[in-house]
């Protein structure tokens, strides 16, 4: 059974169709990159999978671990191991980052029938995990994303991912706004979390992240469809030649 199976997915926002028949299968242990120019529907796909309210699914099916994803509310999807690293992480003033994560992790553990972690065990866990994103421990006690730089916010997303240990992670433009050091740290973080059991979908429009995170499959998105798929070399070709040639090719075949 595949971890994620997307079949002919159509979705719209305010009546405008953005996704026009996405087909994608992701298996455990795989890293997929979805590339494409701005406005091609990449973030919409990420949002639909995570359950953002603004999007309406008009057709198609998504199976997550064999179950209908759309039967689950967003928090259930999260508790079932679906994680979205936000393109624009949200600030929650006054709420301590580690307290937030403790509530989050315990909500997930409760769902799985696991015992709640107490403050001491949790602290030990996050002190270890925060090293993955090479951040200072003071980072744990700051309010969630409040006053964080752009790079810190993205690193914080990967830190959340490290603590919550999701099955399927969707990184929505995680590389945008990162300087080269932050990009390395974020990528190395993602690589450390890679395993045979989990899978990652990387949504990006630059190839540079894929220098660090080597994808198994690269997909090109255009006008709400995945129009071309290939190995990691496809990403390099895109970097060299831009998106237009794919679009022309796709235009001919559709």
């Amino acid at each position: 059974m595949s971890l994620l199976e997307i079949k002919n997915l159509h979705a719209s926002v305010n009546g405008n169709e953005i996704l026009r028949g996405i087909n994608l299968t992701v298996n455990a242990g795989e890293v997929h990159a979805i590339m494409g120019p701005n406005g091609s529907g990449k973030s919409t796909l990420a949002g639909v999978l995570a359950g953002r309210e603004a999007y309406t699914v008009t057709d198609g099916q998504v199976l997550y671990k064999g179950n209908n994803l759309f039967d689950m509310v967003p928090e259930e999807r999260a508790r079932e191991g679906l994680f979205l690293a936000f393109q624009y992480p949200v600030e929650i003033p006054g709420v301590n980052n580690s307290y937030f994560l403790k509530e989050s992790l315990n909500a997930i553990r409760k769902h799985k029938g696991l015992e709640q972690l107490d403050a001491i065990d949790f602290l030990a866990l996050i002190k270890q995990k925060v090293k993955i994103v090479e951040m200072d421990e003071s980072f744990l006690n700051r309010p969630v994303n409040e006053g964080f730089s752009g790079g810190e916010k993205k690193r914080n997303e990967i830190f959340h991912m490290a603590v919550l240990e999701p099955m399927l992670s969707i990184l929505d433009e995680t590389d945008s706004g990162l300087d080269i050091d932050a990009l390395r740290i974020v990528s190395e973080g993602v690589n450390k979390l890679r395993s045979k059991e989990n899978a990652t979908i990387i949504v990006t429009h630059y190839q540079r992240l894929l220098n660090y995170i080597i994808p198994d499959v690269v997909h090109v998105m255009k006008d709400g469809r995945l129009v071309k798929s290939g190995g990691k070399e496809l990403a390099l070709e895109l970097e060299d030649r831009g998106y237009d040639w794919v679009h022309e090719e796709a235009g001919q075949t559709v």
Binding site: P74, V90, P93, V95, A107
Partner: peptide, 30 residues
């Protein structure tokens, strides 16, 4: 309380109620 804040909390596994509590308690922390 923004929809985006609630959604962010939900995406981390928290219910809407827990999200509101968290945000409100953060607001009242001082």
């Amino acid at each position: 309380i923004g929809d985006d804040q609630i959604f962010y909390c939900k995406q981390r596994g928290l219910s809407a109620e827990d999200a509101v509590n968290l945000i409100v308690n953060g607001f009242c922390k001082e």
